[in-house]
C-alpha cells in the first residue's frame, strides 16, 4: 500500500471529474472524528493504492494498515476503482458513495426503469423521469431513482436537447456501473 504518484493522481481525478462538479475538492477536505479518543485533531481522508486498486481511506486507518503485509492486505476503506495495465482508471460501483453527493449531472429513472437498469441495461428514454438541464453528450451522469437514491452511474448517449427529440425506445444513458453489481459480480468484485 502506497500513496499515488502524480500521474496516477491526475488520471484518478480526471475520471472522478467526469461525474462530479467543483465540489470534488470536498473529498480532500472532508474530515472524520479522530479514531483516537484522546486526540482532538480531526482525521482527514487520503487515497491509497494497494496492488492496482485505489482506496479512499481515513488517514489513521491507512497508517494502521502499514503494519499489515502487502500480500495479506485485501481491502481497506472504500474502493474507488482500479488501474488497468495500460494505465487507465476504471471506476467501480463502490465509488458511487464517493461520487453521488458531488454529482454534476443526474438522471432520475422512473419506477418501471429501475429494475432494467439494475439488471445491467442501458437507460431508455421511456424510463427517464427527469434529467438535469443542459447535459452535453458523452458526459458522466449519476443515475438516481425518483426518491433520489443513487443507483449507479453512466455516460449520456445524447445531449438533453437531442434526447428530447428521441423516440421512447432510444438509449439516453449508457450504463457504466449499477448497484446490482453487488449481487451479479459478488464473486469478483472484491477479489484482487
Amino acid at each position: 500500500m502506497r500513496p499515488l504518484t502524480d500521474t496516477e493522481t491526475k488520471t484518478l481525478f480526471d475520471k472522478l471529474a467526469n461525474y462530479t462538479g467543483r465540489s470534488l475538492t470536498a473529498l480532500l477536505t472532508t474530515t472524520a472524528p479522530s479514531a483516537n479518543p484522546k486526540s482532538t485533531a480531526a482525521d482527514h481522508y487520503v487515497f491509497r493504492i494497494q496492488k492496482d486498486r485505489v482506496y479512499y481511506v481515513r488517514s489513521s486507518l491507512a497508517n494502521l494498515a502499514t503494519s499489515v503485509a502487502r500480500d495479506s492486505l485485501l481491502s481497506l476503506g472504500t474502493c474507488v476503482g482500479k488501474f488497468t495495465k495500460t494505465g487507465k482508471f476504471r471506476l467501480h460501483v463502490t465509488a458511487l458513495d464517493v461520487i453521488a453527493p458531488h454529482a454534476r449531472y443526474k438522471v432520475w429513472v422512473k419506477k418501471n426503469g429501475e429494475m432494467p437498469f439494475l439488471y445491467g441495461g442501458h437507460i431508455v428514454k421511456a424510463h427517464v423521469g427527469r434529467w438535469s438541464e443542459d447535459v452535453p453528450e458523452h458526459t458522466g451522469v449519476v443515475v438516481c431513482s425518483m426518491d433520489d437514491t443513487p443507483l449507479g452511474f453512466g455516460v449520456t448517449a445524447r445531449s438533453t436537447a437531442e434526447a428530447r427529440r428521441l423516440d421512447p425506445t432510444g438509449i439516453v444513458t449508457f450504463r457504466q456501473a449499477d448497484v446490482g453489481e453487488y449481487l451479479r459480480e459478488e464473486d469478483t468484485l472484491f477479489t484482487t
Binding site: R2, P3, T5, D6, K10, F13, A17, N18, P136
Partner: peptide
C-alpha cells in the same frame, strides 16, 4: 516514483484537472 501525499499537491492537481474539465464541458456546450 514521485508520490503525492500532501494535501497541497493533491489540490493543485485537482484544480488543474477541474479547470481542464470545465473547459471541455464549456466547449462541448
Amino acid at each position: 516514483k514521485h508520490f503525492v501525499d500532501d494535501g497541497d499537491g493533491m489540490r493543485t492537481i485537482l484544480a488543474l484537472v477541474m479547470a481542464e474539465k470545465e473547459g471541455n464541458i464549456e466547449s462541448k456546450m
